[in-house]
């Protein structure tokens, strides 16, 4: 289960921020990174991301799998961008500095490489904060923090409960598939795709049924204890904002402002070193 991304309990300045803070931070920070293609801004954001990560006391082991997975996604993304629009950078930056012609309509062009580099940097600027949000936010606090920033507590709670049931459903899935394998239902590569799809129905059917049972029990339990009684509710795990929270939110907005300021300076989303 080491591959699963879930809350890792530690005592660090990042962990001590409230869930709402981390959510807002992640949201604003991502917005800032999405807006700009300015290499300098993105690089600084990435560096800050690394610093935040160091502050959280999480280790490379905690995120290795997730990072590899995302890097793989980025590589696929970039290859696709290059294949479909190899001259995108040229039209953006207005110059064309060819390094070498490859084949047909594909050449290595500095402008395109720079564009793809910036594209990658956008991900790099967001990934650390995204990981931090997921790994350092106590799931208990998740619903409370969504509620605090204006999301209905019913929605927040549904999300939190759904998240919490993931391990249970995983366990059910494993047990059901083991029992079905014992009955000769094979999901390995040996079978044809059509057969495998048919066979997976033999696992999904009982899985859905037992999940429905689960839902009935939990919704009864919640109603019996007054969930949905009032428009509002209080939260025992909610924490008050501290100076650190305001500071963190401040930093996020600062990043957004800088990103916008540089857009004005550059006269657009792109920083152009080619002219």
């Amino acid at each position: 289960m080491s591959a699963a991304l879930s809350y890792i309990k530690k005592d660090s300045p990042i962990h001590n921020l409230t869930g709402s803070t981390k959510f807002i931070f992640f949201f604003v920070w991502s917005l800032a990174a999405m807006l700009t293609f300015d290499t300098r801004v993105l690089a600084v954001m990435f560096l800050f991301g690394i610093v935040f990560f160091k502050m959280s006391k999480l280790t490379w082991e905690n995120i290795r799998f997730a990072v590899y997975f995302m890097l793989w996604l980025i590589v696929v993304n970039i290859l696709a961008l290059f294949l479909f629009a190899p001259e995108q950078g040229v039209s953006i930056y207005g110059t064309r500095t060819e390094i070498v012609h490859l084949f047909w309509r594909y050449s290595l062009v500095w402008e395109e490489l720079f564009y793809l580099f910036n594209f990658t940097m956008k991900f790099m600027a967001v990934i650390p904060t995204a990981l931090l949000f997921i790994l350092t936010t106590n799931p208990s606090e998740f619903a409370a923090s969504l509620n605090k920033i204006g999301v209905s507590y019913k929605v927040g709670y549904s999300v939190a409960i759904a998240l919490r049931y993931i391990p249970d459903v995983q366990r059910d899935f494993r047990e059901i598939s083991q029992a079905q394998q014992a009955r000769g239902i094979d999901l390995s590569k040996k079978d044809k795709l059509v057969d495998r799809l048919k066979n997976s129905a033999a696992i999904l059917f009982p899985l859905v049924l037992s999940s429905l049972d689960r839902i009935e029990v939990i919704s009864n339990a919640m109603e019996l204890r007054g969930f949905g009684k009032n428009k509002k509710r209080t939260w025992i795990v909610e924490r008050p904002f501290t100076k650190a929270d305001y500071l963190a939110i401040g930093i996020a907005f600062l990043a957004l402002v800088i990103s916008i300021v540089f857009m004005c300076i550059n006269g657009g989303r792109f920083f152009n070193p080619f002219i």
Binding site: P139, R225, G226, N230, I236
Partner: peptide, 20 residues
């Protein structure tokens, strides 16, 4: 199946939370 809170603390507090 009837546990709602992620921790014992939250589960015990659940109905009081709903009472604001």
């Amino acid at each position: 199946g009837q546990f709602i809170g992620m921790t014992v603390l939250e589960d015990i507090a659940f109905s009081m939370e709903n009472d604001c």
